[in-house]
């Protein structure tokens, strides 16, 4: 449905040329949640703005609904943009309008819609995001999470096919992030809106995305199903995003470490306790970042195995038996190949 073909974006100033994006090719399918992850400065924001032509790409094509965005007239382009709404890190609500009138805004600029019809629909949308009681408040009276909900309601006012989320949860605390992500997922499921998520946080990708592209210095480092990229990151940059440096205690040379990945397939159960009891050995947890959503576990954990090789075998056998994805990590950051993956 959205196809990016060899997309390029170069910023030219008098003195220098900066290539923000080079040769980006992606296909985003109808109804999926597609993640684009990268460190700051990787070109994520430029990429998402090239999709709706807020920034004109300097090369390549953006095909939306079978039409080349570059071939559209100005009027058609404005109409196409209404089919792909966008939400932002900074919410970007109109500060002098009430919540209700903010949601009305995209409909007000359409021709031939009555005030009462617009207001009724805006109220419906506010109900969808759970803020009907805030209709007459102003954005400055709301919390960040509430403002983002209003922004989402406003984005849905044009009945878009695509929702572009530009770091939509980066300014929010973890709990609020959670609720916004569930809301986005719900909108995707219930309204069939295709979602493109731009983020620098792996936890956002692992929670809601089906597929992911890793962007590094304007290039796509790798792309694929979230599960595959998560378990078998092929590039240095992906590994860095998955196990952020500085968050992990330094690897102790000579010790074998395993990275366990919980991708929601694992049901809530005390895996590590069971493991230590069943394998009769102790493990050291170096890093853990897991979350329980709908009684399923998401996230990852880094454990240091005992020195006893037999115990190591037992642990790996146990993990395979429990169907938990794991991967051996070594001190230099390279994942060892050939380890048994579940």
């Amino acid at each position: 449905m959205i196809q990016l073909e060899h997309l390029n974006k170069t910023y030219t100033s008098e003195r220098s040329e900066v290539e923000a994006l080079s040769d980006i090719s992606l296909t985003i399918n109808d109804g999926e949640i597609f993640g684009i992850i990268g460190l700051s400065g990787a070109g994520k924001s430029t990429l998402v703005r090239c999709i709706n032509f807020l920034e004109r790409p300097t090369g390549g094509k953006v095909i939306f609904d079978g039409r080349d965005m570059a071939s559209l007239s100005h009027k058609e382009l404005l109409a196409a943009r209404r089919q792909m709404s966008m939400i932002f890190q900074g919410f970007n609500l109109l500060s002098q309008r009430t919540v209700l009138r903010n949601v009305c805004f995209p409909m007000e600029i359409e021709k031939g819609r009555s005030r009462s019809e617009i207001t009724a629909k805006a109220m419906d949308l506010l109900r969808t995001v759970g803020l009907e009681d805030k209709a007459d408040s102003y954005p400055s009276q709301l919390s960040g999470g509430q403002q983002q909900r209003v922004a989402i309601a406003r984005a849905l006012a044009t009945d878009p096919k695509v929702l572009l989320c530009d770091e939509a949860t980066s300014a929010l605390d973890p709990t609020t992030t959670q609720s916004i992500l569930s809301l986005i997922k719900r909108i995707n499921r219930e309204m069939g809106v295709t979602v493109i998520v731009i983020t620098h946080e792996m936890k956002v990708i692992e929670q809601i995305c089906d597929r992911v592209a890793v962007l590094d210095h304007g290039l796509i480092a790798e792309q694929g199903n979230v599960r595959d990229v998560f378990i078998h990151p092929k590039t240095e940059i992906s590994r860095n995003l998955i196990l952020p440096q500085g968050e992990v205690t330094e690897f102790i040379p000579g010790e074998r470490c395993l990275r366990l990945v919980f991708d929601g397939e694992t049901l809530l159960e005390p895996v590590i306790s069971t493991m230590t009891m069943e394998c009769k050995c102790k493990v050291n947890i170096l890093f853990a970042n897991t979350k329980i959503i709908d009684s399923r576990t998401y996230g990852q954990m880094l454990i240091q195995m005992p020195e006893d090789e037999l115990a190591q075998e037992r642990i790996m056998a146990f993990l395979e038996d429990k169907n938990i994805d794991f991967r051996e990590e070594t001190a230099d950051g390279n994942t060892e190949t050939g380890s048994a993956d579940a």
Binding site: N52, L54, L77, L78, A79, A80, R81, R82, S85, M86, F88, G90, N92, L93, L94, S95, F105, P106, E108, I109, A151, R154, T158, L164
Partner: peptide
Amino acid sequence: DSGVIEAVQSMGTPDFKIITK
């Protein structure tokens, strides 16, 4: 706020409406 302007542009608002509204 330039972010607000960008947001209304992303909704396909014509320039004249951006000025008046």
